[in-house]
Design a protein around this nucleic acid. Structure first.
Length: 479
RNA sequence: GUGGCCUUGGUAUAAUGGUUAUUACUCCGGGUUGUGGUCCCGGUAAUACGGGUUCAAUUCCCGUAGGCCACCCCA
């Protein structure tokens, strides 16, 4: 047996030990290190379920990610961008619960989709109710539309959301088990202009960030159109079966529309001559689609027709689209997508109500923003904070300081400060670290005199002014 | 879900089958009283987890977890 004590004592696990280390150590030794050892290690099963070891608890669950202050500028830029554009187009904020009856999603997204069959978090709650973490936004909003009788409001009813979604997929860059989507939905009117408006919002939301994107457009028509088309496609693919790769042979039965995604050369050739869904659309659907495209032309939104585009959710009818980053290197992933779903509301138990919407994956947008930031060397987003630092000295300085900070806030002025620090030296150091242009200094003496010092951080020149003039002086500086 | 590569303090790294595991940055404290950007000193902090081989493993082997990449799919 190794006599080396394996170091696996509690003291080694920093989060627990830390300060108490010295004091607690003896106690632990007394209480027998064997038991401690077992509790600390082994992330093993216990009647089938897995339990995290103490150490594992300090890393996030697989596929889950902390959004940290270092990325604040990206996330705040996105949130404000979403809020601004949605508001400008008269969409109204909505937030539905993270948890819904599993059926809300199953009945709308549809069995047979990966999202439902393989990725949705479904479980029973303590009442034995089968519930699910939302894997996408539309279904829950449709449910809300129905249950709150939105059909009695002026149509179209337009809403936007900014929420977390959950899918138990295998994590990869840009693919998480919890991710955020910004999306818009428009209910109650079947008109191509509605679709064009949504695409325009989605397009400009991303394009405003300076990201070049490409909109892929397609129409999958009505359910009947699609059925007829799929029959045709399968027939065709079966004829050419011997030319296809193994994967595609498999797809013929499982998901014929997906054969178009294959990158194998021989398959590509087969597909080039395959029947296209556009040719199988009903007159109405065809006209509708043409109309959408005309609007996009008018809006000067660049798009490409992609007759192979199908979406992973079953509720779409007619218009479907996806937004890709315009990037030459092959493996690109969609930043967002959407489409029309004229049957969905009724399908979930509401009145016959057309609808259309989109959603955008924010983690993916952030990763593009980061890449662009690195390439250009230009920081993304606006620093929402002030360039003025407020330093305080002594008990009186603190008290008076807090008061002044509140007074500044009421005048629309924001200052950096750190009242946890007491030495002026340290405060100036941090003022310097975040690049303050000026530091306001308030010590005992100033409190007594009713004055305050403003220090120019670059030149080091200081000016003592009357506290009453502080708001005025700082307003000048922050212009 | 399938396959490949990877895993040393908060971050980035060095090294080794054998006494206190390197360095830098960050963070905390100090260089005498209320003045930063340089400098100096000190401190906190790591071999993902579990098992095996071995007298001895952070180092070799296996398993697990996690990350990345490709497939699948999509956001």
């Amino acid at each position: 047996m190794p006599q080396k004590n394996k170091k696996t004592t509690i003291a080694k696990h920093r989060p627990i030990a830390k300060k108490n280390r010295v004091i607690k150590k003896p106690t632990i030794k007394k209480s027998g290190s064997d038991s401690k050892k077992t509790t600390l290690s082994t992330p093993v099963k216990d009647d089938g379920t897995k339990t995290a070891s103490i150490k594992n608890m300090f890393s996030a669950l697989r596929g889950m990610k902390d959004i940290l202050p270092v990325d604040e500028r990206f996330w705040r830029t996105l949130y404000h961008g979403a809020e601004d554009i949605a508001t400008a187009y008269n969409f109204h904020f909505i937030e539905t619960p993270i948890l819904e009856h599993a059926n809300v999603f199953i009945r709308s997204i549809g069995k047979g989709t990966d999202v439902i069959d393989k990725e949705m978090y479904v479980f029973e709650d303590r009442d034995g109710m089968k519930i699910a973490l939302r894997p996408e936004g539309t279904a829950g909003i449709v449910r809300a539309y129905i249950s709150h009788g939105f059909q009695t409001q002026p149509q179209p009813v337009k809403v936007w959301y900014y929420e977390s979604m959950f899918r138990h997929d295998r994590p990869q860059a840009g693919r998480y088990r919890q991710f955020h989507q910004f999306g818009c939905e428009s209910f109650g009117i079947r008109d191509a202009v509605i679709d064009a408006e949504l695409i325009s919002v989605a397009y400009h939301f991303i394009n405003d960030l300076g990201i070049d994107i490409q909109v892929k457009m397609n129409s999958i028509g009505t359910v009947e159109d699609r059925q007829k088309y799929i029959v045709e496609l399968v027939t065709y693919l079966r004829q050419k079966r011997s030319y296809l790769c193994e994967d595609c042979k498999r797809r013929i039965n499982k998901n014929p529309l997906r054969t178009f995604d294959c990158k194998q050369e021989q398959c590509q050739q087969v597909k080039a001559e395959a029947p296209q869904i556009i040719d199988w659309l009903s007159e109405d659907s065809k006209k509708f689609f043409m109309k959408v495209l005309e609007y996009l032309d008018e809006l000067e939104i660049p798009y490409i027709l992609d007759t192979t585009l199908v979406r992973g959710l079953n509720y779409y009818t007619d218009t479907v689209f996806e937004i890709y980053e315009e990037d030459e290197n092959g493996s690109q992933s969609a930043l967002g997508g959407g489409g029309r779903y004229d049957l969905l509301v009724e399908q979930l138990g509401g009145l016959d109500t057309p609808g259309s919407g989109f959603s955008i994956g924010l983690e993916r947008v952030v990763s593009v923003m980061k890449r662009r930031e690195q390439a250009s060397g230009k920081l993304v987003g606006v620093d929402p904070y002030s360039s003025i630092y407020f330093a305080q000295l002594g008990e009186q300085g603190r008290r008076r300081g807090l008061l002044l900070i509140e007074r500044l806030r009421l005048n629309g002025l924001v200052v950096h400060h750190n009242f946890g620090k007491s030495s002026l030296r340290v405060q100036l150091e941090s003022a310097n670290k975040f690049g303050a242009t000026h530091t306001v200094i308030l010590g005992q003496k100033e409190v007594q005199d009713g004055t305050i010092i403003i220090r120019d951080m670059e030149s080091g020149i200081q000016e003592t002014i009357d506290q009453k003039k502080l708001v005025h002086e700082l307003s000048k500086l922050s212009q």
